[in-house]
Design a protein around this nucleic acid. Structure first.
Lengths: 229, 229
DNA sequence: CACTTTCGTGACGCCTTCGTGACGCCGTCC
DNA sequence: GGACGGCGTCACGAAGGCGTCACGAAAGTG
């Protein structure tokens, strides 16, 4: 199954050039002219990477990028924005909104491919299906439900996102700042210690199932989800 | 220990602007006017990120980037290049040479900081590196864990950093001053004998596994990590 | 064999980091 | 509009590390 790239771009010239370049590189290009069409494509199959034009009919690309980042399905799909030259402030907003990289028009096919390659290599190994099962815990992504030893568990939205992130990236330490980035989403302004509190709440809901030691503290570094104490 | 950024740039105007911006953001800026000076800085302590001017006296920045990528010490330090506008082909060569990102002059301090932040976060999450295995010891960098003969070992943060540094640079003697630079970070004022104490603590945690003689004393010179007594 | 230098080691007090309960705010649901 | 649940922040306390010191052992030095 080859990598599928979604191009959200309304200018036919660029779209065709990109599609041609991707095709030659052995990547599958899917094209959408606006946000509505893009959503249809995503519903059919979540792409491996999204090329997003800065200006879209009806909605700015930046706004759409934020929306993609909020959506559970597309949260971890890398996004490369295609921008016109200039507008540094907005480029910053994009990076802060979670966009992975930029390519400035006019760009060469060669540059675009290099960027795509770099971004995909960067996120490799972090691919994520909706449902995860690990160490007595199971998360059913589509159903948005958690089971501990087969028993359904109730928890708040933030706890859920935190647990989901941890289970998608086990055996790895994340600092409070990283968790704020990944779980709370790009640039919310929240105290770092807030993470501690939610770790506590997550542990408390897992306590009745003796699963609270899956969430481990690494002093001076952050937290880790691991099945081996 | 704050993050240390090395700026390799010969134009004083840009250098000062960058240093000022970094300082305000709580990052430590170290500056070098040419490649030779940069190497000196790196020898003192490997920086957390390198800002590299495209044109340098004596050597092109791209060439230097390649050299940094070949060197064991700096292989995994992210590099951001500062380039003049234009020359897309070369930008591609840079990405292929392992440069992590570009900032095009003239750039705003805000954009630079956003890029730096993005790159550091990216590298932090991605790196499989930091994983070392040597002489019965294994350090899992991402998981922030140490195994001795397969058994997990608990230790404090400083012990961990010390061991990690030693295992990344085995068979080589480091003076107490060098260890303070590399492990504690440049500008901390601590007694040199403090190193002794942490060496002692590291040995003690390795003792139960008969691995404590990996850390060797070189009288009058410093300490060494070696698999051959 | 004295004498000096260097290193190992245990103990101690301070400071940072983390866990935890409580509180107030805000949105949602009856 | 009242109740409720979830979230972010704070304050306090406990625990764990860390840096320093002092003393003794070991290794050079002459």
């Amino acid at each position: 199954m080859s990598k599928r790239i979604l191009i959200v771009e309304d200018e036919p010239a660029i779209r065709d050039m990109v599609a041609f370049a991707l095709g030659r590189a052995g990547l599958e290009a899917v094209h959408a002219a606006d946000v509505r069409a893009a959503q249809d494509v995503i519903m059919a199959r979540v792409p491996d990477l999204i090329l997003l034009d800065w200006m879209l009919p009806g909605m700015s690309g930046l706004e759409y990028a934020r929306r993609l980042r909020r959506d559970e399905m597309t949260r971890e799909v890398p996004i490369i924005m295609l921008t016109a030259r200039g507008e540094e402030n907005d480029r910053v907003s994009g990076l802060e909104a979670g966009v992975d990289d930029y390519v400035v028009k006019p760009f060469s096919a060669r540059e675009l491919l290099a960027r795509i390659k770099a971004v995909m290599r960067r996120v490799q190994g972090e691919t994520d299906a909706g449902t995860v099962e690990l160490g007595g815990l199971r998360i059913d992504g589509p159903a948005h439900r958690v089971f501990a030893n087969g028993q359904p568990v109730a928890m708040g939205p933030t706890e859920y996102r935190l647990l989901h992130f941890f289970m998608s990236h086990p055996e790895r330490v994340y600092s409070r700042a990283q968790l704020l980035d990944q779980v709370w989403g790009g640039n919310v302004y929240v105290e770092e210690r807030t993470v501690d509190v939610h770790i506590r709440r997550l542990r408390r809901t897992l306590e009745p199932f003796q699963l609270d030691d899956l969430v481990q503290t690494v002093r001076g570094a952050g937290y880790r989800f691991s099945t081996t104490p």
